[in-house]
């Protein structure tokens, strides 16, 4: 079209074509600019998304749980209600786990690092001692915790104890709700393989409730516990960031075994 115009009236066409040329150049410059802007925008966006993705991946990978190996190390329920999980002859390093069945962070610690403790014990790399305590003082958290603590004290067999312990954490009642009810505890006991005839009576009567509270008080004072979960390696508290990072936790405990 512009060519046609040019041949018809050369004078005005010349200035018009110059104008058009400038216009075209401007348009091209604008398009270039726009392209550049789009590229910059997309690049910045991609970098930001990649940063988020990387951080996400890192967070997920530090807290990736180990697979629990099939066979547990022998588990022994002791007279005071603490429970030792260790291969025969393994006496060090000692990992003491102070936890409350009603505490959400303990549930999370068990979810993330529970399998690591079991594996390390099974590999003979640590002697793991569980201390179920009641740390809560407000209701209904306290009663929930005491009922669970009582029930687990009704179990003498180590294997059943561990299965019951795991079930308690998996079924932890939400905050502010009455939970760990007697019939639930009895059912989980059955699920955990408890066959002892006095289990039902022991759970129902809360026979060990006082023992649970006494032990909690005694161990909290002795160990100066301020929060659960507290996990100590040879008597020194393991940092939370390590406790919740299975690979770091394994390294720290394995290091202590040397």
């Amino acid at each position: 079209m512009s060519k046609g115009n040019r041949t018809k009236s050369p004078g005005s066409a010349k200035s018009r074509s110059a104008r058009e040329k400038i216009k075209e150049q401007q348009a091209a410059a604008r398009a270039r600019d726009k392209r550049k802007r789009v590229v910059t925008y997309v690049t910045a966006g991609a970098v930001a998304v990649a940063a988020v993705g990387l951080g996400w991946w890192y967070a997920a990978s530090t807290s990736r749980s180990e697979e629990a190996t099939a066979a547990l190390a022998p588990v022994t329920v002791q007279a005071d209600g603490s429970v030792v999980m260790a291969k025969a002859g393994v006496t060090a390093p000692v990992v003491d786990i102070y936890e409350d069945f009603q505490c959400p962070a303990c549930k999370e610690a068990e979810r993330v690092s529970g399998p690591t403790f079991k594996n390390l014990a099974a590999e003979g790399k640590a002697k793991v001692v569980y201390h179920p305590i009641t740390i809560f003082s407000q209701e209904p958290l306290r009663s929930n915790s005491v009922r669970a603590g009582n029930a687990v004290r009704c179990i003498a067999d180590g294997k059943q104890w561990m299965a019951f312990h795991d079930l308690l954490f998996q079924n932890q009642p939400p905050e502010g709700v009455e939970g760990f009810k007697t019939d639930e505890l009895l059912q989980w006991g059955k699920q955990a393989g408890v066959t002892a005839p006095d289990f039902q009576q022991c759970v129902t009567s809360q026979k060990n409730a006082q023992a649970q509270l006494d032990y909690s008080k005694k161990i909290s004072d002795a160990q100066k516990l301020t929060h659960t979960p507290t996990v100590k390696l040879n008597g020194t508290e393991i940092d939370n960031a390590v406790l919740f990072s299975p690979s770091q936790l394994r390294d720290e405990i394995t290091e202590a075994a040397k």
Binding site: T62, A105, E108, F244
Partner: peptide
Amino acid sequence: KIGNPSDSVVAVKA
């Protein structure tokens, strides 16, 4: 929060 992803998870779950 970034130093301890599990704390963050516990907070969200709460």
